[in-house]
C-alpha cells in the first residue's frame, strides 16, 4: 500500500503559478478528499500524483518513492475521470481489460479478473456492449471497474460523480465508501461539493487559491474551522460571520446553533430581527433573519415562525467561533478569546 507525499511542490502553467511550495502528506489507506472552489488547484494536485501534469519543482512521493520521473502507467495508480474517459471504440470488456493487456497479464488470468470485477460492479451482462449503449451510471461503473481491475495501491478520482443525477450520486457515494473499506487502498478524491467531502472523507483537505486552508477529519473541519474561509465553505447554509467592532475580529455561528425566540434570552449573542424568508425543507426549516447588524441564516428543527415575524436570535457561548483580524481561528485557550466574548456580549446586551 502507499502513502502520498508532496514535498515543496510548485506548479506553473505558462508562468502562471497555481501552486507554490506546497507540502502535504496523504495517509496510506485513507479516503482523502481534496475540496475547494473551482480553480483552487485540487485537480492539479491529483494530476501531479497521476503524473499527467508533472510538477514544475519539488517532488511527489508515492509509498516513500520519488515518482517524479516515472511514467503515469508505472506509478501503481488508477484514475477515474470526470467525463469517465472510456474508450468509445472498445467494448466494455476491452475497456476494462486494456490496462491488463498492456501490463502483459496472461489471458486466463485477465478473463478471471474482468469477470470478477464486472460481476462486482454489476456490468457482467454488458461486457460485450459498446459504451455508447450504456447509461451514465453504467459508464461510471465501467470507469470504476477499469480502475479497480488493475488493483492499484492508489485510487485517484476527479469529480467522478458530478455527471450523475442527484439520486444516483447519493447511491454511488455509499458504494464508494464501501469500496474503499473493501479494498483498503489509498483513495484521493477531488470534488468541489462539500457535502460529498463531508460524507465520504476520512480526511478533508480544503484548498483555496493553491493554498491548503485546513487538513482535518470532517467533524473537526466542521466544529473547529481553522479560518473564515473554511468556516464558510463547509456547511449549508454557510456559517454566519459578522464583524465584532473596531478590533477587526470576527464572530461566527452555524445556522443550527442559533435559537429563535420571541423574548430576549441571556446568551452572549442575542439580536432582534425580522424573519425575511422561510424555507421549509421537511425535517428542518431555514429562516433568514434581517437585523440591524446584518442578515443571519438560522436552521431550526421545528417550524414555529412565519415570515415577517419579529424574533430574537440567540447563540450560546459554546457554539460561538471567533476569528482574528487575519481571519484565523481564535482558540478557546487564547487570551483574546475572552475579549472577543466580552465585546460580543457588550454589543448584544449593552
Amino acid at each position: 500500500m502507499a502513502s502520498i507525499a508532496f514535498k515543496r511542490v510548485s506548479k506553473a502553467f505558462d508562468k502562471h503559478e497555481v501552486i507554490k511550495d506546497l507540502d502535504l502528506t496523504i495517509e496510506d489507506g485513507k479516503f482523502t478528499v481534496l475540496v475547494g472552489p473551482s480553480g483552487c488547484g485540487k485537480t492539479t494536485l491529483l494530476r501531479m500524483i497521476a503524473g499527467l501534469d508533472p510538477q514544475t519543482s519539488g517532488s511527489v512521493l508515492i509509498g516513500g518513492k520519488d515518482v517524479s520521473r516515472i511514467a503515469p502507467g508505472k506509478r501503481g495508480v488508477a484514475m477515474v475521470f470526470q467525463n469517465y474517459a472510456i474508450y468509445p471504440t472498445m467494448s466494455v470488456r476491452e475497456n476494462i481489460e486494456f490496462g491488463l493487456v498492456n501490463n502483459k497479464v496472461r489471458k486466463a488470468e485477465r478473463e478471471e479478473l474482468v469477470e470478477g470485477i464486472s460481476k462486482a460492479v454489476g456490468l457482467y451482462e454488458y461486457l460485450e456492449r459498446k459504451p455508447s449503449t450504456l447509461s451514465g451510471g453504467q459508464r461510471q461503473r465501467v470507469a470504476l471497474a477499469r480502475a479497480m481491475v488493475k488493483k492499484p495501491s492508489v485510487f485517484l478520482m476527479d469529480e467522478p460523480l458530478s455527471n450523475l443525477d442527484a439520486k444516483l450520486r447519493v447511491q454511488m457515494r455509499i458504494e464508494l465508501i464501501e469500496l474503499h473499506k473493501k479494498l483498503g487502498a489509498t483513495f484521493v478524491y477531488v470534488t468541489h461539493d462539500q457535502v460529498e467531502a463531508m460524507s465520504m472523507a476520512d480526511t478533508i483537505v480544503l484548498m483555496n487559491k493553491g493554498v491548503i486552508q485546513q487538513e482535518a477529519p470532517p467533524d473537526e473541519m466542521y466544529r473547529r474551522p481553522s479560518n473564515r474561509f473554511t468556516a464558510q465553505f463547509i456547511g449549508t447554509p454557510p456559517m454566519n460571520v459578522g464583524e465584532l467592532g473596531e478590533s477587526g475580529s470576527l464572530f461566527g455561528f452555524r445556522p443550527e446553533s442559533a435559537v429563535l425566540s420571541e423574548a430576549q434570552g441571556d446568551e452572549p449573542f442575542s439580536v432582534r430581527g425580522v424573519i425575511a424568508t422561510r424555507e421549509m425543507l421537511g425535517s428542518e426549516t431555514i429562516y433568514q433573519v434581517r437585523s440591524g447588524s446584518g442578515n443571519y441564516m438560522v436552521k431550526c428543527s421545528e417550524d414555529l415562525f412565519a415570515a415577517g415575524q419579529e424574533v430574537y436570535v440567540g447563540v450560546p457561548a459554546a457554539k460561538l467561533h471567533f476569528f482574528g483580524e487575519d481571519e484565523r481561528r481564535i482558540d478557546e485557550k487564547e487570551s483574546s478569546y475572552g475579549k472577543c466574548m466580552e465585546a460580543l456580549r457588550g454589543r448584544s446586551h449593552g
Partner: peptide, 22 residues
C-alpha cells in the same frame, strides 16, 4: 478528448499501441 489519451497513459499503453488501439 485528451482525457482518453490520459486514461491510456495511466493504463500503461505504449505510444504505438495508443495510436493503433485508440
Amino acid at each position: 478528448s485528451p482525457s482518453i489519451y490520459e486514461a491510456a497513459a495511466l493504463d500503461n499503453a505504449s505510444k504505438l499501441r495508443t495510436f493503433w488501439k485508440i
